[in-house]
């Protein structure tokens, strides 16, 4: 039998309250998005006309702007999730947990700019028409 690692009971420990609350909120937001998304994307089966019509609605400028929030949720949840795993699975990671946190958030922030700036420019073009 595999032993259940002792760390499970205390995983929240390595989190910090705010990191944990944000992980929970972003995770739930992503589930909400995923449910709608699977339903919206199903329209691709109806062919080019139907799909482009639906996508025209969900890509109105307001939604292009909100996608920046989605990108933020994805990047925070992903890199905080990876941080949780590093701290759980590696002794060194656990000891240097503050540094792991800083490094992960730096990568997330960098990717947010890398993806977010072009997306924001795309949004600006969409309001300019």
């Amino acid at each position: 039998m595999l032993e259940r690692p002792n760390v499970i009971k205390h995983y929240r420990w390595h989190m910090g309250t705010w990191a944990w609350v944000l992980h929970r909120i972003t995770g739930l937001a992503l589930v909400f998005y995923l449910v709608l998304h699977i339903w919206v994307i199903h329209n691709i089966s109806s062919g080019p006309k139907g799909f482009d019509k639906v996508m025209g609605v969900v890509q109105a400028p307001l939604f292009l702007f909100l996608e920046l929030g989605l990108l933020g949720c994805v990047l925070y949840h992903t890199f905080n999730g990876l941080r949780i795993m590093i701290v759980e699975f590696s002794k060194e990671g656990c000891e240097a947990h503050k540094m792991v946190w800083g490094a992960m958030m730096a990568v997330a922030g960098f990717l947010f700019l890398l993806g977010g700036v072009p997306m924001f420019v795309h949004f600006l073009h969409s309001i300019a028409g």
Binding site: T78, L82, M85, G115, V121, H122
Partner: peptide, 28 residues
């Protein structure tokens, strides 16, 4: 699944948005 998603989700964002030059999601 978290590790698998980390790879697939970031790839998904890049590919569906057409980053680094985003253009709309169209059938074509």
């Amino acid at each position: 699944t978290g590790v698998v998603l980390a790879v697939l989700l970031i790839a998904h964002f890049i590919v569906t948005h057409g980053l680094p030059h985003p253009s709309g999601v169209t059938y074509a």
